[in-house]
Amino acid sequence: MTQPRVWKIHLDRPLAPGGWRSLSDAERERARRLGSARERHRFMVAHAALRAILGDVCGVRAARLAFGTEDGGRPYVTLPHGRTAPGFDLPDDEAAPDSNLSHSRAVADSNLLRGRGAPDFNLSHSEEWALVAVAPPGSRVGVDVERIREDLDCLAMAGSMYQREEVDRLREAGPSGLRTGYFRLWTAKEAYVKAVGVGLAGLRNVLVREESTTHGAVLSPPGAALPVRWLDVAPGYAAAVVTAAAAS
């Protein structure tokens, strides 16, 4: 399965030129309803960046992108009838799997565009960072980023939300690894349910096994294991991306 491409966006940077105009009326209204200027700014930067990325990938102006929603509310890109997403060359300096839009232009990986139809995507944000993951047609992708909170009783939360095997691993990690481990597992679980579209209610049924510091597997009966990749976003954050095959 082709790896998804992931972009990270620092949400406290200035809004890109034309970013406000690229948003839909619904997105602008959502931004206006947010409670603080910082929240409004971060929402606008995240959604303008998402549109810029998908516009490059799909060969459509960011402001003209159209979206639909699945029954569970998961968004997807809709392309005009008969339209397919074009391919782009990937420059050598963009070859890393994660690109920061504050330093580089979003350029699509041609591997994302094999097959017909629109690519799949997912957006996640937590405080000052956002991630956008894009996968080729025929795949589904989920991504999650979380600020590692110090005010959470991680072991108590794990006892009510996680599998026994996961709780045992967290206990064995000791005080130094418990909090980071809890959030690593959480991001993998949330990326999984976002990829497969089962909703947060499915978190309790998900088991995450860590194969290395960067990779693992997510299992949820009766489905097969799916690979998870943990991402290094910034100090104090945990993040993960999961890719699944689209239902035929």
Rank of each mutant, 00 (worst) to 15 (best):
V206C: 05
L207E: 13
H215K: 12
S220R: 13
L207A: 14
V198L: 11
G202D: 03
Y237R: 09
L203Q: 08
A238K: 03
G216H: 07
L200M: 10
Y192Q: 06
S212D: 12
G199C: 03
V206N: 01
F183H: 02
G199F: 00
A239E: 05
K194V: 05
A217P: 09
W230G: 05
L226D: 07
S220Q: 15
A234Q: 09
A238N: 02
A217T: 15
G223H: 15
A240V: 04
P227K: 06
V233R: 02
L200V: 11
L231N: 02
R204L: 13
H215C: 13
Y237M: 02
A234K: 07
A224H: 14
W186K: 07
E210T: 14
L226R: 03
P235Y: 06
T187A: 03
V198A: 11
L226F: 09
T213P: 08
V218R: 02
K189C: 03
A195S: 10
K189Y: 04
R204V: 15
A201S: 15
G236L: 02
R184M: 11
E190V: 07
L207K: 12
E210P: 01
F183R: 03
V228P: 09
R204G: 14
G199A: 10
N205H: 15
T214C: 13
P227N: 08
W230A: 02
Y192A: 08
F183Q: 03
D232I: 06
F183W: 00
A201T: 14
V228A: 10
K189I: 02
L203R: 08
A224K: 13
K189V: 00
G236C: 01
P222F: 08
L203S: 01
V193A: 04
A224V: 13
L231Y: 03
A201H: 13
V218Y: 01
E211W: 12
V208S: 03
A188H: 04
F183L: 00
T214G: 09
G199S: 07
V193G: 04
P221D: 14
K194L: 04
V208Q: 08
A195F: 04
L207D: 09
V193N: 06
P222N: 05
R184K: 12
R209K: 15
A201V: 14
V193H: 01
Y237Q: 06
A240I: 00
T187D: 09
A188Q: 03
A225V: 05
V196H: 06
V218Q: 00
A195N: 06
W230D: 02
Y237V: 06
V206H: 00
T214Q: 14
V198G: 09
L226E: 11
G216T: 05
G216V: 10
G236S: 04
A234P: 05
V228G: 04
A240Q: 08
G223N: 15
L200G: 10
Y192P: 02
P221T: 12
H215V: 12
A240H: 01
D232L: 05
V206I: 11
T214R: 15
P222H: 07
T214A: 14
P221V: 12
K189N: 06
A238E: 10
N205F: 15
V198T: 14
L207C: 14
P222E: 07
G197R: 00
V233G: 00
G197K: 06
V228T: 02
L185V: 04
A240M: 03
T213K: 10
H215T: 14
P235K: 11
T214P: 09
V233K: 00
K194I: 02
N205C: 15
A238V: 08
A240R: 08
P235Q: 09
V193D: 07
S212W: 09
G236F: 01
L203Y: 07
P221F: 11
